[in-house]
Structure formats: structure tokens, C-alpha cells
């Protein structure tokens, strides 16, 4: 299966700007399906970004983050060609991870 994580990481020499979009339902547990049954909560809880063996950004999320979540941040020192490791875990224990090259 294709990765659930799409990444754009671009360095301008000084800072690296990172944008990710993740395919995930981010169900709140407050919405009913067509049959009137509650869709149980299902959302990413933690998303981490690691560069050069060090965490550069950690997102702790609740179910109030939109479906197919998006986040953007920037850090210093990333270089073109460097690896950026990204991983998430959700409230049901499912996970996904990917490694992106900084452009």
C-alpha cells in the first residue's frame, strides 16, 4: 500500500521548510454514520519529525485536527539531500513512517 504520508521539505540553505499531508480519517467519535451509529474515535495522536538523529518537531494531536491532516513548520540546518524521518501513531495503535529527502 502506498504511504499515507506526503512530504515536501525544501531547504534554502539556512532553513528547511517542511509541509506534510497525511491520509487519515481523524474521526472524532461524535459523528454518526449513515445508519445512525457512532463512528468511533480514530485519530493520529503523535507525529514526529527527525533529522540527523534528533527530533526537530513533534505534533501531539487530538481529534480536532482536520481529516487528512496538514502541518507546516521550519527548522534550521537541514541541507539538500539530507534525510527527514517522519512517523505517526494513532489512538488504535496503527502507525506509518517514511523517510523523505530534503530538496
Amino acid at each position: 500500500m502506498a504511504s499515507t504520508i506526503r512530504v515536501r521539505a525544501t531547504s534554502n540553505g539556512e532553513t528547511t521548510e517542511v509541509q506534510v499531508l497525511i491520509q487519515h480519517p481523524m474521526d472524532t467519535g461524535y459523528v454518526k454514520d449513515a445508519k445512525g451509529e457512532i463512528i468511533p474515535p480514530h485519530y493520529i495522536q503523535q507525529l514526529t519529525f527527525e533529522h540527523g538523529g534528533k527530533a526537530v518537531f513533534i505534533a501531539d494531536w487530538g481529534s480536532g485536527v482536520s481529516k487528512d491532516p496538514y502541518v507546516k513548520f521550519a527548522f534550521k540546518n537541514g541541507k539538500k539531500g539530507d534525510d527527514l524521518k517522519i512517523a505517526w501513531i494513532d489512538n488504535k495503535g496503527a502507525t506509518d513512517a517514511t523517510t523523505a529527502k530534503i530538496q
Partner: peptide
């Protein structure tokens, strides 16, 4: 609480996201 982002040393204090 919707989201909480930890900003280690060397990461800029700026974040964009989409929320409900």
C-alpha cells in the same frame, strides 16, 4: 485542545495547520 506542537532548539517558532 486541538494540537500541541513541541519546538526543539533550532526549530522556528511558527506552525500552520488545519483544524476542526
Amino acid at each position: 485542545l486541538v494540537a500541541s506542537y513541541r519546538i526543539p532548539d533550532g526549530t522556528l517558532p511558527s506552525v500552520s495547520n488545519r483544524i476542526k
